[in-house]
Amino acid sequence: MIINNLKLIREKKKISQSELAALLEVSRQTINGIEKNKYNASLQLALKIAYYLNTPLEDIFQWQ
């Protein structure tokens, strides 16, 4: 199981879903879906999320 901390980290950094989506060149709905565990981010997208949030990938998506 993967624990998804994207919403928590994004909100801590005061970045909206729309802002993050624009940086990543995806839709806001994609970010929303990832945060609600409706969609799994591809490895490429997960790495981009970590880069733009300046946060280690394993802090955003944790295996349990």
Rank of each mutant, 00 (worst) to 15 (best):
N37W: 08
F61R: 00
K7D: 03
I34P: 01
D59K: 10
L53E: 01
T30E: 08
R28Q: 14
A50D: 00
A21V: 04
S42F: 04
L45E: 02
E58L: 09
T30N: 04
S42I: 04
I34W: 04
K36N: 15
G33M: 15
E25Q: 15
Q17N: 02
K36H: 13
Q17S: 06
R10W: 06
Q44I: 10
L23M: 14
A46C: 14
N32V: 15
E58K: 12
I3Q: 09
L43S: 06
A50K: 02
K13H: 11
I60Q: 01
Q44A: 14
K36F: 06
M1P: 10
I3T: 13
L57Q: 02
L20T: 00
A41F: 12
R10I: 05
Y51S: 08
I34E: 01
I60T: 03
Q17R: 07
I2Q: 08
K12E: 12
I2M: 11
K12Q: 14
P56C: 07
N40V: 15
N40L: 11
Y39S: 08
T55S: 08
K38P: 05
L24W: 01
N37Q: 08
Q29G: 11
N32K: 13
L57A: 05
S18T: 12
Q64M: 09
I31C: 03
A21G: 06
A50T: 03
R10C: 12
I49A: 04
Q64R: 11
A50L: 03
Q17K: 06
I9H: 06
K38T: 13
N4I: 08
Q29A: 14
L20M: 05
D59I: 08
L47D: 04
Y39E: 10
E35V: 02
Q17F: 03
N4F: 07
K36M: 14
L43G: 05
L47H: 10
Y52G: 03
N32H: 11
G33A: 15
A22K: 13
F61C: 05
Q62A: 10
L43A: 08
L20K: 00
A41H: 03
G33Q: 15
A21L: 02
K7A: 11
L47T: 12
N54W: 06
L45P: 00
Y52L: 12
I9Y: 09
L24N: 00
I49H: 00
Y39G: 06
E19A: 14
A21C: 04
L23S: 09
I31A: 01
W63H: 05
L20A: 01
V26E: 03
L45G: 00
L45K: 00
L57S: 03
L23N: 08
N37I: 03
P56H: 06
L20R: 00
A41K: 02
Q17C: 03
L23G: 09
L6W: 02
